[in-house]
């Protein structure tokens, strides 16, 4: 699709505007989107909010006007992207898929491996322990500490046995 404004470039920014119940659509190239002040880098200010916000920028072909809002705090994805801050804990569930790439950019990883609160489920704790034991096992194998390996292997098998019947229920 070509840009509706210049008619030359590929349209990569798609806008949906709803005014008084009437919805209009616009398809622009990055350059024209910038001119219309709807580009990703609008303002280009360098306060901290914008800085983190930039981390949340999505590829422009996905920059569709937001209709999804967090049911707890009412924030849209672009609200979060602009401020770099979530509105409430539930935002992370609502926008998980869209936030994930940026979270990965910030931390390099996207799976929590730290403390798990007591209420968050026994299974997860067990998984984490298993993971840790397997890591220790690998390290011990590398160090050729075979006595420790045997103990670790027993504990791993024990945990795996406990886990399997539970999962089949």
């Amino acid at each position: 699709m070509l840009c509706e404004s210049c008619g030359k470039n590929q349209a990569t920014t798609h806008l949906k505007k709803t005014v008084n119940g009437k919805t209009t659509e616009m398809h622009l190239c990055a350059e024209c989107a910038q001119k219309h002040g709807v580009g990703m880098w609008k303002g280009m200010g360098f306060d901290l909010g914008n800085f983190w916000g930039a981390l949340f920028a999505e590829p422009s072909d996905r920059a569709i006007a937001d209709t999804v809002r967090c049911e707890v705090c009412g924030k849209s994805f672009s609200d979060i992207a602009q401020s770099g801050k979530a509105g409430c804990p539930h935002c992370y569930t609502t926008f998980y898929d869209r936030l994930l790439p940026s979270i990965q950019r910030i931390h390099g990883k996207a799976q929590h491996t730290g403390k798990v609160p007591a209420g968050a489920g026994e299974k997860m704790k067990k998984d984490r322990e298993l993971e840790e034991l397997r890591r220790q096992l690998a390290a011990n194998i590398a160090d050729q500490k075979y006595e420790a390996c045997a103990q670790l292997r027993d504990r791993i098998q024990e945990l795996e046995k406990e886990e399997t019947p539970h999962e089949q229920q």
């Binding site: 979530a86 992370y92 998980y96 910030i106 798990v116």
Partner: peptide
């Protein structure tokens, strides 16, 4: 102290993202 308070308050937590915080730079632990 965290564990004690969590016993009563149940802090916001996600299996994948860990403890949920306003700024994504603090997610996880």
């Amino acid at each position: 102290l965290d564990s004690f308070l969590d016993g009563q308050l149940r802090f916001a937590f996600d299996d994948r993202l860990g403890y949920l915080t306003q700024c994504p730079t603090n997610l996880g632990t």
